[in-house]
Design a protein around this nucleic acid. Structure first.
Length: 500
RNA sequence: GGCGGCAUAGCCAAGUGGUAAGGCAGAGGUCUGCAAAACCUCCAUUCCCCAGUUCGAAUCUGGGUGCCGCCUCCA
C-alpha cells in the first residue's frame, strides 16, 4: 500500500516519495500573531498535525517546522491601539497560540522560526534576488519582478495576463506602493519603515521584510533548499505560496517543495470564517463557553470532514461532534474501567493505556483479526488522509467496546474473550492517537458521596418503592444522578450503581 | 473577466465503473411502577437536473443549475 497526497502543484493525487527514505521535511505556514486563533486556524493546524502524526506512525522521522509571522501591519496597528510594542503584542499571541492549540492536542513543532529572528537570512535572499535581477529597489522598498520568473503562477494555475489587478477589492489606489511598482503584480520583499515603526537597517534604508519573503528564507535556513511537504490554508495558494516559490526557486534553481498540501476553509453560513468578515469564533471562545465542547470534540469536528473540503461551523455540528466524542471516549476508556474486572494484570502499570507502549506498526502483516481494523484505517489514511473513513473504523471499534462495557456493568461479566477485548481496545487507543484523539481516565474523585452514603440512599429508595412512594424513589434517583451516580435497577429488587 | 473546488438521507459525511461506510438525530421492540440506562432491530432501489458512453454509472463524457474559495489582509 502506498501513501498518496493530493498535490496542489500538479492538481493530482500522487504517491508520496520523500527525498530521503525515512525522513520527511515538512513546513507549515503559521499565524500572523496579532489576535487569538479562530476555528479556521484550529482546523488548519489540527489537519497538518494529523498528517504529521500519520507520517510518524508510518515510520517517518518528521521534521516539522512552523513559523510565526511577528512583523506585520496588523501587529503594528494593534500595538499602536494598545499603546504597546510589536514585540509585546506578538509574544502575547504566541503564548495564546500555544495555550489554545495544545488543548487541541496539536503537537509542538520541532522549530518555530520567527521573522524577526531571521532578518539576516531575509536580507541575504533579497540581495541575491536583486543581483539576479529578479528584484529591484524603489524608494526604500524592494519589489519582486514577477514577469522575470517564467513559471510564476504554476502553483495556483493562473497566468499573469489573465489576472485582474485589484479584483479582490483590497488594493488601495491611493497607496503610493502602487506607483513604485513596475508592474501591478510585483510584490514587496522589503518595505521602507515609516517614522516610529520598528525597523532594521538594510542596503535600501531602514525597513522591514514583506510578508512572503520570511517563509522562503526560513525554510532555507531550517530545512534546506528543497523540502518534502509544504502546507497551509487554501487561501494561501495565491499569492503567498506562489510568491514563496518565485522567491526561492529564482535563487536556488531547485524545487522549493515537492508536495503542496492545502486545507479547506471553515465556513459560517456558507461564507469563509475570517477576521475581515468578523464572523469568527476563537478557539477559546468556543471551548470556554458554558456547555462548550470538549477540545477533542472540536478535533473530531474537524477530522469528520476531508481536509480539503470546506466545513460549515454551526452549533448543531459542534453538538453532534460532542455526542460523537462521548461515544468514542467510552471506547477509549474501556480498559481503564473494565480491564481489572477482565483479569488484565497490568492495569496498575504506569504505561497502561499509553499508545506508545502498545504500538501497532503501520504495514503490519494484517494476518490476525485485529489487523483488519488497522488495515482499513491505513487504507483510508493512505488515500490523501481520508480521516472520515479512518474514523468510521474507530467508531466501529469504540461502539463494540462500549457495548461490552455496558454488558459488564449490567451483567457483571461478558462472554467475550478478555484477550480479544484487550486487543480491540489497544487497537482503538493506538489508532485514535494517530488522529490525535486521546481520552484521559477520570481521576478517582474522593470528593463525591461515599459508598456508605450511596448505599444508604439506595436502601431508602428501596423502602420507598416498596411503599409505592414513587415520588420519593424518583427524587433519590435524581439526587444521585446530580452527583454523577447512576442507578441500575435489576430484577429481584436489587439496585446497582456506578459513577458516570 | 480568469483560475480552482463542491452538490450523496432530517443534519454532518465517506465512497472515481460492479450495485450506497461511518457519525449525529429519529423510530419500533425487550425490560420497567413509570422513566432512565442497557440490549436487539429499523432508518437513501438511490446519489442537484438533462442527455450520452457502458452488460453495468453516485462514480466516465457533454450540457445545464446552484453554492463556495482565490485573483496582492487571510489558516
Amino acid at each position: 500500500m502506498a501513501l498518496e497526497f493530493y498535490n496542489t502543484l500538479t492538481r493530482r493525487r500522487e504517491p508520496f516519495t520523500p527525498l530521503q527514505p525515512d525522513q520527511v521535511k515538512m513546513y507549515c505556514c503559521g499565524v500572523t500573531v496579532y489576535d487569538y486563533c479562530h476555528l479556521g486556524h484550529a482546523r488548519s493546524y489540527i489537519v497538518w498535525d494529523t498528517v504529521r502524526r500519520y507520517l510518524m506512525w508510518r515510520g517517518y522521522d518528521v521534521h516539522y517546522v512552523q513559523n510565526f509571522t511577528d512583523i506585520d501591519d496588523k501587529i503594528l496597528n494593534r500595538a499602536k491601539q494598545e499603546n504597546s510594542t510589536m514585540a509585546e503584542v506578538s509574544n502575547r499571541f504566541i503564548d495564546a497560540y500555544f495555550a489554545d492549540l495544545r488543548r487541541l492536542n496539536v503537537l509542538d513543532a520541532v522549530e518555530y522560526p520567527r521573522a524577526t529572528e531571521h532578518i539576516d537570512a531575509i536580507l541575504k535572499l533579497i540581495n541575491a534576488l536583486i543581483e539576479a535581477d529578479y528584484a529591484y529597489p524603489a524608494g526604500g522598498d524592494v519589489y519582486y519582478r514577477v514577469q522575470r520568473f517564467p513559471s510564476y503562477g504554476k502553483l495556483s494555475g493562473r497566468q499573469l495576463d489573465q489576472m485582474q489587478a485589484g479584483a479582490s477589492g483590497r488594493v488601495d489606489p491611493e497607496d503610493p506602493e502602487g506607483n513604485r511598482k513596475q508592474y501591478p503584480f510585483d510584490f514587496a520583499l522589503w518595505k521602507a519603515a515609516k517614522p516610529g515603526e520598528p525597523s532594521w537597517d538594510s542596503p535600501w534604508g531602514a525597513g522591514r521584510p514583506g510578508w512572503h519573503i520570511e517563509c522562503s528564507a526560513m525554510i532555507r535556513a531550517n530545512l534546506g533548499e528543497t523540502i518534502d511537504i509544504h502546507t497551509g490554508g487554501g487561501d494561501l495558494v495565491f499569492p503567498h505560496h506562489e510568491n514563496e516559490i518565485a522567491q526561492s526557486e529564482a535563487v536556488t534553481h531547485k524545487s522549493l517543495a515537492n508536495y503542496w498540501l492545502h486545507n479547506g476553509m471553515v465556513n459560517v453560513g456558507g461564507e469563509k470564517m475570517s477576521k475581515s468578515l468578523g464572523n469568527f469564533t476563537t478557539i477559546r471562545q468556543l471551548l470556554d463557553a458554558p456547555n462548550g465542547p470538549d477540545p477533542m470534540a472540536l478535533r473530531l469536528f474537524v477530522l469528520q470532514a476531508h481536509y480539503r473540503k470546506p466545513i460549515d461551523f454551526t452549533a448543531e455540528s459542534i453538538a453532534s461532534a460532542q455526542n460523537s466524542w462521548e461515544t468514542l471516549k467510552e471506547g477509549l476508556l474501556f480498559g481503564y474501567r473494565f480491564g481489572e474486572s477482565l483479569g488484565w494484570t497490568d492495569t496498575t502499570d504506569s504505561a497502561f493505556g499509553k499508545a506508545e507502549s502498545m504500538r501497532i506498526p503501520a504495514d503490519s502483516d494484517f494476518s490476525d483479526q485485529r489487523s483488519e481494523a488497522v488495515q482499513r484505517f491505513q487504507e483510508a489514511m493512505d488515500e490523501d488522509i481520508n480521516s472520515p473513513g479512518a474514523l468510521a473504523v474507530l467508531f466501529e471499534l469504540a461502539k463494540d467496546l462500549r457495548r461490552e462495557g455496558n454488558i459488564i456493568t449490567h451483567e457483571g461479566k461478558t462472554t467475550t474473550n478478555a484477550q480479544a477485548l484487550r486487543q480491540q481496545w489497544q487497537t482503538l487507543v493506538v489508532l485514535a492517537q494517530v488522529l490525535g484523539l486521546e481520552a484521559e481516565p477520570e481521576a478517582e474523585s474522593n470528593d463525591g458521596l461515599s459508598d456508605d452514603v450511596i448505599a444508604n440512599l439506595i436502601a431508602q429508595r428501596r423502602d420507598a418503592k416498596k411503599a409505592k412512594d414513587f415520588a420519593t424513589a424518583d427524587r433519590i434517583r435524581e439526587e444521585l444522578k446530580a452527583q454523577g451516580i447512576v442507578l441500575v435497577d435489576k430484577p429481584g429488587g436489587v439496585t446497582e450503581w456506578h459513577r458516570g
